[in-house]
Amino acid sequence: MAQGGQEVTDIHSSANQEKDSCAGCGIALQTETADKPGYIPQAALEREPVICQRCFRIKNYNDASSVTVDQDEFLRLLGSIAATKSLVVHIVDLFDFEGSLISGLQRFVGNNPVLLVVNKTDLLPKSVNLNRIRNWVQQKAKEAGLRTVDVVLCSAMRGSGFDHVLEALDEFRNGRDIYVVGATNVGKSTLINRLIRDYSDLERELTTSRYPGTTLDAVHIPLEDGKSIIDTPGIVYPSRLTELVPRRVLQSLLPEKPLKPLVYQLNERQSLFFGAIARFDFVAGAPQSFTVYSSPAMKVHRTKLERADELYAEHKGELLAPPSLAELDEIPAWTRHSLRIPRGSDTDIFISGLGWIHANSSQGAEVDVYAPKGVKVLLRDALV
């Protein structure tokens, strides 16, 4: 991949390129879908050089926004890391941990050390013990077969814990490049921009040096020791609810402020609707409470199980919203997940992209979760 002055040459040679490809990264240009690679507004096709919106933002605004790629392309990029001498920084979203953890990462990175950076800790209630959260993360990473040199908790948005990220980079980099990997919507671009400001001293060069060469593989951000921070595209996991809903609905799914747990005392055969996006049925068990951890913007509606189907048919997209009735057509139909919560356990019912429901009783329960087909739904040891 070209870097430094060579990248400037690549960018300014656009006169020799066809207008159907980006002069900055070589991606095929398209004017239809703004959140897909290669997008360029129709009016911008007359500019010189002709570059996609992503490259335009990098050049003019120092915006290290990630571009999403499909899983096969992302895994090809991951596989190339094994042949490098790098520190791999894997960023995950604590709100959607199981949904954003890259499964099988270890086999792609070879012997390179992996630093696990857990973002969005600012969303947890202030009373939560962060040492307990860190231990929980370490255990989950181990179960997933991921060997980490360290686990760092932070909030890239709020800046909390970022000193610990920088300390870990200093400790484990040892003159290596830094590859930053993660799924979409985990806050990777926010963290990258913080790294640029705090870790790289070459901000004046970013408008040229952060262009990729001829392929849409990664963005190289030079460090003063001759190495680079390599920002890889965000991987799309269709098992995450946030990848399946219309963009407007994301506002209701992605919390921006600390979660406010909602406690529901339920008898068996009662249901909770999360807008018209998902449904939770307490099928059988002793009366007990369930604590919901989801975005405050997501409306939760309680009803009897015997009325749930009728309520959904009559009020989806209206009383039960989001999404709207029209937007429901863009989301896969629900699939039922039948789960048994063991006696004596401390368990969460996790729904990727929506949050989780904590079962507060140790008496056990049988529950059903209805979520769009493909969304990851599972039982896990309690996070909080």
Score class of each variant (00 low, 15 high):
residue 175 G to A: 12
residue 106 Q to W: 08
residue 153 L to P: 04
residue 161 G to N: 08
residue 151 V to R: 04
residue 189 S to G: 11
residue 135 N to A: 15
residue 152 V to G: 04
residue 175 G to P: 10
residue 130 L to C: 10
residue 109 V to A: 07
residue 95 F to S: 03
residue 178 I to C: 02
residue 126 K to T: 11
residue 136 W to N: 10
residue 115 L to Y: 06
residue 183 A to K: 01
residue 138 Q to E: 15
residue 204 R to P: 00
residue 192 I to S: 01
residue 167 E to Q: 15
residue 148 T to D: 00
residue 105 L to F: 13
residue 161 G to Q: 05
residue 174 N to P: 00
residue 107 R to Y: 11
residue 159 G to H: 09
residue 188 K to H: 07
residue 190 T to M: 05
residue 152 V to W: 03
residue 103 S to G: 13
residue 92 V to Q: 00
residue 137 V to T: 09
residue 197 R to E: 13
residue 120 K to W: 06
residue 172 F to S: 06
residue 120 K to D: 06
residue 177 D to I: 06
residue 117 V to W: 04
residue 121 T to V: 14
residue 192 I to H: 01
residue 120 K to Y: 06
residue 93 D to K: 02
residue 97 F to K: 01
residue 183 A to G: 06
residue 164 H to M: 08
residue 140 K to W: 00
residue 118 V to D: 03
residue 127 S to C: 09
residue 157 M to C: 04
residue 203 E to Q: 15
residue 103 S to W: 01
residue 95 F to C: 02
residue 132 R to F: 10
residue 142 K to I: 10
residue 133 I to D: 05
residue 144 A to R: 13
residue 112 N to M: 14
residue 147 R to S: 10
residue 92 V to M: 04
residue 179 Y to S: 13
residue 118 V to E: 04
residue 185 N to G: 08
residue 177 D to N: 14
residue 204 R to S: 12
residue 105 L to S: 12
residue 158 R to M: 14
residue 186 V to R: 02
residue 143 E to F: 13
residue 129 N to A: 09
residue 130 L to Y: 11
residue 93 D to C: 05
residue 106 Q to F: 07
residue 117 V to L: 12
residue 94 L to M: 14
residue 110 G to W: 11
residue 152 V to K: 03
residue 179 Y to E: 15
residue 170 D to A: 11
residue 112 N to V: 12
residue 131 N to S: 13
residue 163 D to K: 13
residue 184 T to Y: 02
